[in-house]
Computed example of a mutant assay.
Amino acid sequence: MIDTSQFLADLDRLRQIGTYRTGVHRPTFSPEDMESRRWLVAAMEAVGLEAQIDGIGNVFGRHRGPGPHLLAGSHLETQNQAGWLDGVLGVVAALALARAGLPVDVCAYADEEGHWGDFLGSRSLVGALDEAALDAARNRHDGRPLHEALREVGLAGRERLRLDPGRYKGAFELHIEQGTQLERAGMRIGVVTGIVGIRQWRITITGQQDHTGGTTMAERRDAGLTAVRLLAAVDQEFPGVCAERSVWTTGRILLEPNAPQIIPGRAEITFSFRDLSPEVMDRMEDCLRRVVQESNRRERCPAVLEPIGHTLPSPCDPAMRAALREAAAELCPGAWAEMPSGAIHDSQILARVMPVAMLFVPSIGGISHHWTEDTKREDLALGLEVLAGGARRFLAG
């Protein structure tokens, strides 16, 4: 039987490690993060798993019995001053599956939140993280080398684990939605159809740094104003080419020299868009290129568009989705829906080597990556029960 009481108690215990207001501050390899990893090792051993922390920080609990096996988990670290459920929910749910006797390997994938890089833990597990990438990895906040952090927390020199895809029938991940779709529709469970792809860009605009008072408007080459007009044009044109769940974001604008009395001579924009369909993202990319081309025709400050990241969409496995749908229909008839994941997750990396599926529970107010992030306890428990029901069905199929 699934022990929902112990599941909720484990969530509450981890909430106390790195508490920040009603959320958690537990960045990767911080003392609080390492405390949570050691707690998980002990909890894994208590339910009979063979547990270890590998050389990149993955916490892995291996089922000792015969297969077929499932892999389940998520991540333990958090964004800064963030929520108590993002990632942790999937780890504790996987632990609950193992406690219930299912043939599940449990993993907390290191640094999903990207304090040191992009999906370092899951990329390492699938063989997509080489030594050169490790050497180059730096903390995004203070620039410290990853190798220095690994030495400080006692992980330097440890072996990095590699998954054997042949061991697993598939990988499951339970997660909060991090959006409002379920809550607005009055639904309690979301069976994920797939994880969106992301295309990320750097747009560099070159103007002329000059004096704000002495330079007439006719003479100016203001990179900041060109950046604003270009982004406004993107926002105007994208609705004509996107799909219903497409999103786009200007994550950062850097102006140089970024001083009140100086006309910006350079602007650097980090821009991205997401969708589940490669065809839709192709249309959005074509539109972005046209907008930049038109900006360069009209403006005094030229813009250069450079791709800096391209993540493919990852459809969830049809058989795993069907098992989750059947479990949801039994446990909460009429209160579940299928939906894409607008956020990216470790499951997207695991999908390179094995079938994956995800399950969502509602986020109150859609809030995540903030200390007010929350989900009703009854929805957390239901999510675990649907996950277990789906896992059992898939194993038996």
Rank of each mutant, 00 (worst) to 15 (best):
L95V: 08
V104H: 11
G87E: 14
I56K: 06
N139C: 11
P315F: 08
G83D: 12
R393P: 00
L14I: 09
E306N: 07
D105Q: 06
G57S: 10
G186A: 08
L231I: 15
A227M: 09
T212W: 01
L225H: 10
P264D: 02
H141S: 11
D275M: 10
G83K: 10
D130E: 04
I308M: 02
H211E: 08
T212V: 15
S74P: 10
G61K: 13
G334H: 05
Q293V: 07
E385M: 10
F238Y: 12
P103D: 03
R325Q: 14
L305W: 07
G251S: 14
S277R: 15
V280P: 03
L305T: 13
V304F: 05
Q178R: 03
E330N: 01
Q181T: 13
L305C: 04
H211I: 00
L155K: 02
V191T: 12
A185Y: 05
L134R: 14
Q208A: 12
Q79C: 07
A51C: 02
V24A: 06
D275T: 04
R245D: 15
V59Q: 06
A391M: 05
I176D: 06
V353W: 08
V191M: 02
L49S: 02
I2F: 02
E306G: 02
V106E: 05
A100K: 10
L40K: 04
G117Y: 12
A185Q: 14
S246V: 08
T206W: 10
H25D: 14
L14C: 01
L182V: 04
T22D: 15
A323I: 07
P307G: 13
L70M: 03
D118A: 11
W84T: 11
R229Q: 10
I364F: 00
R283K: 06
A381W: 09
A233T: 08
A132S: 14
T4M: 12
L331G: 04
L288W: 12
T270V: 14
G197L: 12
Q293P: 00
E285R: 15
Q261A: 10
L11R: 09
N80R: 13
A82C: 08
T270F: 06
L146N: 09
R245L: 14
R13I: 14
A42D: 13
T78H: 08
L161I: 13
E237C: 12
M34A: 06
L146M: 09
I349S: 05
R229F: 01
D135A: 15
E385H: 00
S36M: 09
Q208I: 00
I344Y: 13
W84P: 15
A42V: 03
T311V: 12
L70N: 02
E256M: 00
P66F: 04
Q81E: 15
P145G: 01
T4Q: 09
M1L: 11
G190F: 13
I262S: 10
F273R: 09
A136W: 13
G397Q: 08
G309Q: 12
P260E: 07
R15F: 02
L382Y: 04
R220G: 01
I2Y: 04
G186E: 14
V247L: 12
Q79W: 02
V234L: 14
R352M: 04
